[in-house]
Every structure is written in C-alpha cells, then in structure tokens.
C-alpha cells in the first residue's frame, strides 16, 4: 500500500496522531485522517486520477488544490461536480470518479464530414455513426 504521508518534518515537526476515517472511492475502501480532503486522502494512497474529461475521456487530477480550477470534480454520495480538493472526508462517504459523457460527435469522423444540421446528425445516427454510449 502506498503511503505518501510526510510524517516527520524538520520545521513543522512530527505529524500528530489523528482520527482515522474510512470512505470508498469507486467501490474500493480507503482510510484517511481527520482533516484530509478527498483529494489529499486519495493522493496519500497514490491515487491521482479523480475523473476523466467528459468528452475526451482523458484522465484528470487536482490542478490548483484550493477550489479555483474545478479540475477535481467527483461525485460525493449523491452530489455531482463536487470539488475533491475542498471536501473533507467523512466516515462512510461514498466517492466516485467523474465520468465521461456520451459524445454524439465521433472523434474518428473527419471535420468536413461532421453533421452541420440536426437533420444530418439524425441521419448519421441512423447509420450507426457517432459515439452515443460513451
């Protein structure tokens, strides 16, 4: 198990003992400490990827870590789009990574063949083109 905690520090001193908190991320159980955010608790376990980009499905992690950039959006219990970097972990919290969304415009289609009207989009969909099930 990865443990990236900075336990001893020459100026800040030794990390105080804190209450353990257990939560789940995408179905796996993790333990963090009181005062951890979802982002810090997961990074302590070596987990960087918190979501995938809605369209490209490429992995994303924290960028600013203080709530400005919204790169770390996850689902917490039933709430979508929650910033992992600002959310303290709580006992039994259910966190899931931000998921991709269906993309009606297949990236493999050359730009000149993309639908220009809704009618063209519907026609192409009937022909089975386009990424509709993400």
């Amino acid at each position: 198990m990865t443990n990236n905690r900075i336990v001893d520090h020459p100026v800040l001193g030794r990390l105080a003992d804190r209450k353990e908190i257990t939560f789940t991320f995408d179905g796996t159980e993790y333990t963090g400490y009181e005062g951890d955010t979802v982002a810090s608790a997961l990074l302590a376990h070596g987990i960087r990827t918190l979501r995938v980009h809605e369209e490209s499905k490429r992995p994303r992690s924290i960028y600013c870590n203080i709530g400005h950039c919204y790169e770390c959006r996850v689902m917490v219990d039933d709430a979508r789009g929650v910033r992992a970097c600002l959310t303290p972990i709580k006992e039994g919290m259910v966190v899931s990574s931000g998921k991709g969304l269906p993309n009606p415009l297949d990236a493999s289609i050359p730009p000149e063949e993309l639908p220009r009207t809704y009618q063209e989009y519907e026609e192409q969909s009937k022909e089975g083109k386009g990424d509709t099930d993400a």
Partner: peptide, 20 residues
Amino acid sequence: TLPGVMSIGAAQVMTNVHRV
C-alpha cells in the same frame, strides 16, 4: 492536463497543510 501536473500552490497546500 495529465494527472501529476499541478500549480505550485497546489503542491504547497498538499505538502504543508495536508502533509502528503
């Protein structure tokens, strides 16, 4: 946009506040 790229301030908070 790759995981592992962050602002310098993000690293400061992770290091000195969260101690990760």
